[in-house]
Simulated assay, not measured.
Amino acid sequence: MEIEEFESLMMTVLITGFCLFMLFIMWDLARKSNAGKLGTFIIIGGLGLGMLAFVLKGVVIELILGGSV
């Protein structure tokens, strides 16, 4: 395995782990603040919107470049 392949794999794994950890933090924040269903939706929706934009940016770039990166 070349260093570039390893870096690409680790970046994918670590970013995925970081996103999952951020989701856990949002859920825990909503639970500890007794936000209710609507409050939980707003917390996860509002804070998760930035994370969703980051993921969609990567998808759009791959679609535009045709996976030739």
Score class of each variant (00 low, 15 high):
1 M>N: 05
1 M>I: 14
1 M>E: 03
1 M>W: 07
3 I>G: 02
4 E>H: 13
5 E>R: 12
7 E>S: 10
8 S>I: 11
8 S>Y: 07
9 L>V: 09
9 L>Q: 02
10 M>A: 13
10 M>I: 13
11 M>G: 09
11 M>F: 14
12 T>L: 13
12 T>D: 12
13 V>Y: 01
14 L>Y: 07
14 L>N: 05
15 I>A: 13
16 T>A: 10
16 T>E: 06
16 T>M: 10
17 G>P: 01
17 G>K: 00
17 G>R: 00
17 G>I: 00
18 F>T: 04
18 F>L: 12
18 F>Q: 04
18 F>R: 05
19 C>I: 03
20 L>C: 05
21 F>A: 10
22 M>C: 11
22 M>H: 08
22 M>S: 10
22 M>T: 07
23 L>D: 03
24 F>G: 06
24 F>D: 00
25 I>M: 08
25 I>W: 06
26 M>A: 02
26 M>L: 08
27 W>N: 12
28 D>W: 10
28 D>Y: 11
29 L>E: 00
30 A>Q: 00
30 A>I: 04
32 K>V: 09
32 K>L: 06
33 S>Q: 06
33 S>A: 07
33 S>D: 03
35 A>Y: 05
35 A>S: 09
35 A>D: 04
36 G>P: 00
38 L>F: 06
38 L>M: 08
39 G>V: 03
39 G>Y: 02
41 F>G: 14
41 F>D: 06
42 I>M: 08
42 I>H: 09
43 I>L: 09
43 I>F: 07
44 I>A: 08
45 G>T: 05
45 G>Q: 03
46 G>N: 07
47 L>C: 11
48 G>L: 04
48 G>S: 08
50 G>R: 02
50 G>S: 04
51 M>I: 10
51 M>S: 07
52 L>T: 12
52 L>K: 07
52 L>N: 02
54 F>A: 14
55 V>E: 02
56 L>D: 05
57 K>T: 12
59 V>K: 13
61 I>S: 15
61 I>C: 07
61 I>Q: 14
61 I>P: 09
62 E>I: 14
62 E>S: 15
63 L>G: 06
64 I>A: 15
64 I>G: 14
66 G>R: 15
66 G>E: 04
68 S>P: 00
68 S>D: 11
68 S>E: 13
69 V>H: 15
69 V>W: 15
69 V>K: 15
